[in-house]
Amino acid sequence: MGIQFKEVSFQYPGWGKQFFEALKDISLTINDKDEFIALVGETGSGKSTLAQHMNALIFPTSGTVEINGVPITAKRNKKIKYNSIRQQIGLVFQFPEYQLFEETVEKDIMFGPKNFRVPEEEAREMAKKALNMVGLSDKYLTRNPFNLSGGEKKRVSIAGILAMNPKILILDEPTSGLDPAGKKLLMNLFKSIQKETGKTIIIITHDMDLVYEYTNRVLVLNEGMLEFDGTPDYLFHRHDIDKWHLDYPATISVLRSINDKFHYNLDIYQKTIDAAVSTIAKAVQS
């Protein structure tokens, strides 16, 4: 099971016969277990469009997306319950403003479960659990979501999707607009969710440090084409990733320039700052 893309193309309509081709002939398979995937690429490369295909919010212009065995094609099929697909695949949008609407945080998080016919009490329980999962205490349950800070709104919006208990969790730039501490907290949260439940998590991000440190698979999109599909290690060992408008993680860039300037021969492929620091410390001591 999971998500399979088979030669998927997608075009946004434009004036007359012109259209914008957002995705070109994409084929890939995503398992619904034990994957932590980063979807990267420059702005306008089709990342969000690809993510929206994964829970059938938009349909491919050609090709098939198979979501947990249900084929999604260009035509809306009346036999398919698209809604149940969206329960299995949770998609968190980039801006929490687009989804918060209730007067309390609790009610807002309960909106998703209740749409999927979860009984009131159970939904309440799920809301509480989801809120704690994103690192907010119970006293937030009665707060008004519009009076929260940007980071708190973001976490509430993620809790709103988590409460639906999806098999695969997709997050569109979950760390944008967050302070470094909040960023770390969220990424660690995703990591622990992934470890504990074995859910596949897909994040769209521009932050290569996070990609390198946390994920175990990277999809690179460039101008609507899937250019790379593999481990972050393999990706950052390449020397031509700037042709896809990507950067190297800070650890790699720093260690590489230390190597160049001081003619060391350090192992530059360190995933975390701590690992990089200890590599440098070792070199300095010896």
């Binding site: 919010l57 969206r86 329960q87 949008f93 687009y98 989804q99 998703g112 749409n115 999707i161 639906m164």
Partner: peptide, 14 residues
């Protein structure tokens, strides 16, 4: 966009 965000929380308008 809002419709999509709510649809992904199960609010299917169709």
């Amino acid at each position: 966009k809002i419709m999509n965000a709510q649809a992904s929380r199960g609010a299917d308008f169709a």
